[in-house]
Computed example of a mutant assay.
Amino acid sequence: MPELLHSGELDRVEYDIERGKIREFARATFATDPVHTDRDAAQAAGFTDVPATLTHTVVAGHQRDQRTFVEALGLALERVVVGSVKWTYLRPLIAGDHVVGTRRVVDDVRREGKRGGSMRILTLETEYVDADGDPVVRLEEVLIERGDHR
């Protein structure tokens, strides 16, 4: 297990949910619902402002020190693939929200593959809280590091 920060924390990220970024994500993900780009449409649908698209928390990757994260886990990046990503929303993220995400390692196991060789399977969880400290999104990521087959 890597050396973790206080309370088992791997890293922390903090950022604002910005209307312009929501628009960019909507365009990039081909989201056609006008609630993501038009404040009037969002308010007509019951939101206080435009809601973020469902994968918006990936913007955190631009705010984090990814090199330090990889080094802290002792990963060989060239052998890492993403096994899965799962988002659990407790409420929509809305333009104007300020979120803080705390990422922790929740599982770190080694397994033998069916075709020989080992793999390391890391499960990470990031809990995002809003400015009031209320949880808004939980993100679970499974990373698979293939063994070195030299």
Rank of each mutant, 00 (worst) to 15 (best):
L4T: 12
L5S: 11
L5C: 02
L5R: 13
L5W: 02
H6C: 01
H6P: 15
H6K: 11
S7P: 00
S7R: 10
G8Q: 06
G8E: 00
G8P: 01
E9T: 15
E9K: 15
E9G: 02
L10K: 06
L10N: 01
D11T: 13
D11Y: 09
R12L: 10
R12K: 14
V13M: 11
V13W: 05
V13H: 04
E14Q: 15
Y15V: 04
D16I: 09
I17C: 07
I17H: 05
I17R: 04
I17M: 05
E18N: 09
E18D: 13
E18P: 01
E18Q: 12
R19K: 13
R19T: 07
R19Y: 07
G20R: 15
G20W: 09
G20E: 12
K21N: 13
I22D: 03
I22A: 07
R23G: 04
E24Q: 13
E24P: 01
E24F: 10
E24N: 10
E24T: 15
F25T: 02
A26R: 05
R27G: 12
R27E: 15
R27V: 13
R27A: 15
R27K: 14
A28H: 11
T29Q: 07
F30R: 11
F30N: 12
F30V: 08
A31K: 05
T32K: 10
T32R: 14
D33R: 09
D33T: 11
D33L: 07
D33Y: 09
P34M: 06
P34Q: 08
P34Y: 04
V35H: 01
H36E: 08
H36T: 07
H36C: 09
T37I: 13
D38N: 13
D38E: 11
R39Q: 06
R39Y: 00
D40L: 11
D40E: 14
D40I: 08
A42L: 01
A42W: 00
A42M: 03
Q43P: 00
Q43G: 02
A44N: 10
A44D: 10
A45T: 02
A45W: 01
A45Q: 06
G46R: 01
F47K: 00
F47M: 02
F47G: 02
F47N: 01
T48N: 02
T48S: 14
T48V: 10
T48I: 05
T48G: 08
D49A: 12
